[in-house]
Design a binder for these strands. Structure first.
Length: 583
RNA sequence: GGUCAUGUAGUUCAGCUGGUUAGAAUGCCGGCCUGUCACGCCGGAGGUCGCGGGUUCGAGUCCCGUCGUGACCGCCA
């Protein structure tokens, strides 16, 4: 070993020890007669000291060290005459007797500090330098701890980790597949898994009744701050369970992570809201429960005064912004602009101010009396000093817009604190979604999700009404996990494929192996997958999952450090029987 | 596929209704400095204003195109 200790561990108790440290030059302070150097490694920073009087030669050598040089330094641990209470190692320093430069460094293009001066683009290009900084280092350490605690909890519950293949069969359902050409099978392709879905079900058929895997998944869709083309799931499946058993087991996992990593205990069970409920109350299937401001439907109450915007609306919804009655014209205009953005899509915003002095002011004073509005305010549960914000229009788009407005108000009022966590389960998702463009149903979760027993009858009569045994785990407005109880009977699965518009032949060609397996004693089973990157970014308080991934891709799915994807040699293409069409 | 924002010293940014030699901070280099820890002080170097075209007597600034980056919509079972 080059070193006897790390740069984070020496304390006053180690005084007079002769030690050797290795690390990178964080910074040096040359005072003329003496020079201080902060030496950094993964574990911390330790101050080295050189003195002209003690050893002029060595001190001059130290003055020539540049930022990010890699050195090894041997010396004696001594108590500082000026201690630095801000550093864990601030009581000591190393009086260096021997110095060795292991490697020099170019001056890095941005400063390796907690608050770097580098922009995103540059830091992505030099990711290996960015990873030297504490914020990213701490995120990766957190990620490691969470993976470790996940395995620890699930292992204690008798789950076993099984690896599943990465080169699998492509299927047209769901997200676009990443595709891999097969050299030995010209003209044929593998796909990278969007998730190990079918394999974990096959493991259940095989009798491994508690499976888990922390596994990479791939989806060739456009990116977002919380979406990468390759991402990591905590993938799980269990046999002989009902929905209730899954929720209990994995509520346990989430609790274990919060307890062991953040020391947070939740006293109450996680709330469970149905899909229908969260849409009515929050206009969103992943509601942020850190604050209330639930929707109040006014559709029945607010009509019939000759205000055409409301009279013609299929849905009228309100939220109450507590204590905001004094919002200025400018602030209200900002909110109106916000809801009118194309991404939000409302046509306008109606407000009612309930003054603390009992007065009522509204943007629809022309049509409604003060009594009308006080009655509406009472319906909405508003009190003097509150501001009521109302959107009207078609039901679904208006609820969606009101949801955006609710979140915006939550931000403005500081109700979405990063240190507060409000998990919940959303249950009873619809089984199917109608798509007008292709004129067919799609599975909302995936085609293996089982319908609620009570709703199975609707398969033939009214498929849109069927609720699924599907559930999401949502924390602070982030969908961190989701799963379902699967279909384990061949006949029902066949019927499901039929409802989705598959012919028997198509179903057989794409999922024949699964259908076959179901003929050999498939146990009832179900599972869940957590978005590990999202979970870590939530714990880390980061807005983007890129900050918890060592080497992420950018907006356009490029690795700007490696400059990838890239073209490949004609030889390679030929070998793969692929011709590239240049447009 | 679409909308919006953005691109100026190594870096982060400023640069007004178009007008002399494009500024600041930080980093870098040199000098001074024996208890600093974001050390301090003095000095210096450093620019194809992303790229291409246009308008104009004159463009970092206005217009068009293009490329990069970021956020969002569509998309993501």
């Amino acid at each position: 070993m080059y070193r006897t200790h790390t740069c984070g561990e020496l304390r006053l108790a180690d005084q007079e020890k002769n030690v050797t440290l290795c690390g990178w030059i964080q910074r040096s302070r040359d005072l003329g007669g003496m020079t201080f150097i902060d030496l950094r490694d993964r574990y911390g920073v330790t101050q080295l000291v050189f003195n002209m009087d003690t050893d002029a030669l060595l001190c001059n050598e130290a003055r020539r060290l540049g930022r990010e040089f890699v050195i090894t330094a041997e010396g004696r641990v001594t108590e500082r005459s000026n201690k630095n209470p801000k550093m864990p190692t601030g009581d000591i320093e190393i009086l260096v007797s021997r110095l060795n430069i292991l490697n020099t460094s170019l001056t890095p293009p941005f400063t390796i500090e907690d608050e770097s001066d580098g922009g995103d683009e540059l830091r992505m290009k030099y990711r290996y330098l960015d990873l030297r900084r504490n914020p990213l280092k701490n995120n990766l350490l957190l990620r490691h701890q969470m993976a470790y605690e996940t395995r620890s909890y699930l292992n204690s519950q008798r789950f076993i980790e099984v690896e599943t293949p990465v080169l699998i069969k492509s299927t047209p359902e769901g997200a676009r597949d990443f595709v891999v050409p097969s050299r030995v099978n010209p003209g044929q392709f593998y796909a990278l898994p969007q998730s190990p879905q079918t394999f974990k079900q096959l493991l259940m058929v095989a009798g491994y009744d508690r499976y888990m895997q922390i596994v990479k998944c791939f989806r060739d869709e456009d990116l977002r701050a919380d979406r990468q083309p390759e991402f990591t799931q905590i993938d799980c499946e269990m046999s002989f369970v009902h929905q209730e058993d899954i929720l209990a087991m994995f509520e346990g996992l989430v609790r274990h992570l919060f307890q062991s990593i953040k020391g947070i205990a939740f006293n109450e069970p996680f709330p469970r809201l149905t899909y229908a409920e969260v849409l009515e109350k929050y206009g969103n299937d992943k509601p942020d429960l850190r604050f209330g401001m639930e929707f109040v439907e006014m559709t029945g109450k607010a009509k019939g005064r000759g205000f055409s915007v409301l009279d013609s609306a299929a849905y009228i919804g309100a939220i109450v912004a507590p204590g905001c009655s004094e919002y200025s014209r400018k602030q209200l205009d900002e909110l109106t602009e916000f809801v009118k953005k194309p991404q939000v899509g409302a046509k306008g915003l109606i407000y009612i101010r309930l003054g603390t002095d009992g007065t009522v002011k509204s943007s629809m004073d022309k049509f409604y009396t003060a009594e009308d509005m006080l009655e509406m305010a009472a319906t909405a549960g508003a009190v003097p000093g509150d501001l009521i914000l109302i959107l009207a229009g078609d039901r679904i788009p208006t609820q969606k817009a009101l949801s955006e407005l609710r979140l915006e108000m939550g931000n403005r009022l500081g109700l979405r604190s990063k240190g507060v966590f409000r998990p919940l389960w959303v249950v009873d998702f619809p089984l199917l979604e109608w798509d007008g463009a292709t004129d067919r149903f799609y599975a909302m979760h995936h085609p293996f999700t089982s319908p609620k027993a009570a709703d199975i009858g609707y398969l033939d009569t009214d498929p849109a009404r069927i609720r699924a045994n599907a559930y999401d785990c949502v924390i602070n407005g982030v969908e961190v996990g989701g799963g379902s109880i699967r279909i384990h009977e061949e006949q029902l699965q066949k019927k499901m494929f039929k409802t989705l518009g598959f012919t028997d032949e198509e179903a057989e060609r794409q999922f024949g192996f699964l259908m076959s397996a179901f003929r050999y004693g498939a146990p009832p089973h179900g599972g869940i997958a957590f978005g590990f990157d999202r979970l870590v970014s939530l714990f880390a308080g980061e807005d983007s999952i890129r900050d918890v991934i060592a080497f992420p891709k950018n907006n356009a799915a490029r690795d700007v450090m490696a400059d990838c994807p890239s073209e490949i040699a004609d030889e390679q293409l030929k070998e793969l029987s692929i011709r590239v069409q240049k447009s």
